[in-house]
């Protein structure tokens, strides 16, 4: 019985996977074995382990980690507070709404907001903190990325919080647990699935962010995504671009394996 169930649902899904995931994946893998002149070689893989690309990989992972961390830090309490609101579905929609404005335009707005003589800069100057470079720094890059990713983190967390059985929470309180203990032992573990999908929805795309690295960080941050973009569109070195993509996909598998093993569940 159960087996039949699975089969029926699998058909359209597996068809989709085959056409739009496996086929492109096979193509990426295939291209990664060709050097720029079209000869079969492992050169691209050797090139990936040169200092330039290793440095880039490490900094991408570092930035993606920071971005995910700060996004979670803001998104979790926001989602939690939203579930206690009166018109919470409406507020949730209002969280998603800004993502429908074109990202390039929002980035331009941020350039205006964060730039020298912009409102934020002026505010800082007036508050006595003094003018300082905000735009074109690593932190402004993290800030704007967090801004873009917040809705993608809030949604899954909100979903799991909403279904959280409030009687569990009350029971914990009744048993004399402190607010923090209740959160740590009851609420958070029960919403872990949401946190996990949120982190996946942020960390993985954050690894391959590309446009913001130029618009907001002025190329002071260079991610693997930027390099792929350039290899495909500027250098036309599809081989090297594909090789970096292969490593990105490997990174994703590692992240998922870590999440799956429940390294968060330890506490």
């Amino acid at each position: 019985m159960t087996k039949k169930w699975t089969n029926t649902y699998l058909i359209p899904y597996v068809l989709w996977i085959g056409l739009f995931v496996v086929a492109p994946l096979a193509m990426v893998l295939y291209y990664s074995f060709f050097d720029i002149q079209g000869h079969f070689s492992f050169e691209n893989y050797l090139r990936f382990f040169t200092p330039i690309y290793l440095k880039m990989a490490i900094s991408s992972i570092g930035y993606a980690f920071f971005i995910t961390f700060f996004t979670l830090l803001v998104a979790y309490p926001t989602a939690y507070l939203l579930t206690r609101m009166k018109n919470r579905r409406l507020w949730l929609m209002l969280i998603i709404l800004p993502t429908w404005i074109n990202i390039l335009l929002k980035a331009y707005a941020f350039i205006g907001l964060l730039g020298t003589y912009g409102p934020v800069d002026t505010l800082l100057a007036m508050s006595g903190a003094g003018r300082r470079q905000i735009l074109f720094t690593g932190s402004s890059f993290v800030f704007v990325s967090v801004y873009l990713f917040i809705p993608f983190m809030i949604l899954p967390i909100y979903n799991s919080l909403e279904k959280l059985n409030s009687s569990f929470v009350e029971a914990a309180y009744d048993l004399g647990a402190s607010a923090w203990a209740t959160f740590r032992r009851v609420i958070f573990p029960l919403t872990l699935e949401g946190v996990k999908s949120g982190c996946q929805a942020v960390f993985i795309p954050a690894l391959s962010l590309f446009m913001l690295t130029r618009l907001i960080a002025g190329n002071r941050v260079i991610t693997l995504g930027t390099a792929i973009e350039e290899h495909f569109l500027v250098t036309q070195d599809w081989g090297m671009g594909s090789t970096i993509a292969v490593f990105l996909i490997l990174a994703m598998v590692v992240v998922m394996a870590l999440m799956g093993k429940g390294w968060l569940k330890r506490w």
Binding site: I17, F20, V21, V22, A23, P24, L25, M27, V28, Q200, A201, I204, P205, L207, S208, F210, G225, I228, E229, F232, L233, W238, G241, S242, A245, L248, I249, A251, M252, V253, M256
Partner: peptide, 18 residues
């Protein structure tokens, strides 16, 4: 994992392969 590959793949690669 297969599900998530499209989310990690940079847009240019998805675009070019499509």
């Amino acid at each position: 994992s297969l599900n998530n590959i499209l989310m990690v793949s940079p847009d240019v690669i998805i675009g070019a392969s499509f």
